[in-house]
Design a protein around this nucleic acid. Structure first.
Lengths: 136, 136
DNA sequence: CAGTATCCAGCTAGATACTG
DNA sequence: CAGTATCTAGCTGGATACTG
């Protein structure tokens, strides 16, 4: 326990919490979906203008997401001010989600991460192959 | 299943695997430890020159890490070519770990992430507080 | 349409004990 | 010193069923 008081990354630290948000799989994908064109291939680029999306639209767009994870992710993003949630009192109700400036900023960050990863991918892959040969 | 073939972020994609590496808690902390001075407060900065460290030194430096996680993290980093592992055949053996250029590059990336997170922290915290008041 | 509620399988990581 | 091996509690996330 006495060791635990030294770190700046662990649980309590706000910056750590934000890292958790940044690095969540569905967060990345939801943000991408909010900027995608209709092409269904949104993982890589998705640098389009963030227009509002309906829940069902996101659900259909995102490959393999469960309702639970989609809702959970949307709530978390809304709470952090990264997206807005708008309810129109139609019958049945219409709910739309839209990226905020802060959310846009996060997504730009994630895209930066992604391109860094891709830039060094070959290098890492080569290292792994070499290591696995050495070790067997 | 048919939905799963569209994404570029999910399991199979190499860039996704690298993202996992980037965003691992212990990876960040081990890299930081390899660049820390002896101050024991290494979470925040740790922009020092990466000098070799012994296993036991890392274990003592890192707050709350288990042997299992430390070893596991070190192996993963070594496999990816982000650190080197050097064994000197003394009795008992002496093992040292040192950051490679690629590892250094990763750590710079993580530090960038961290400063981004810190820059937007206040904003997010305010949004959370506002949301929690709205909802209760 | 846009969720909520519940259950459960699988993975992760901490604790503990042991070793060349 | 620098690990490996094993067990298990807890969390995460998927499947399923139900609702204003």
């Amino acid at each position: 326990m006495s060791k635990a008081e030294y770190d700046a990354f662990l649980a309590g630290c706000p910056s750590r919490q934000l890292l958790d948000r940044i690095t969540d799989k569905w967060v990345a994908l939801v943000l991408a979906a909010l900027r995608s064109d209709g092409s269904h291939r949104f993982g890589a680029d998705c640098a389009g203008d963030p227009r509002p999306r309906r829940y069902s639209e996101l659900f259909r767009t995102l490959p393999g997401v469960s309702q639970k994870m989609l809702t959970q992710t949307l709530r978390a993003l809304e709470r952090d001010g990264l997206i807005t949630r708008t309810v129109e009192p139609t019958v049945p109700v219409t709910v739309t989600y839209e990226m905020t400036d802060l959310g846009f900023s996060l997504h730009e960050m994630i895209r930066g991460l992604k391109s860094w990863a891709e830039a060094h991918m070959d290098d890492v892959l080569a290292n792994r192959a070499a290591y696995d040969t050495r070790v067997g």
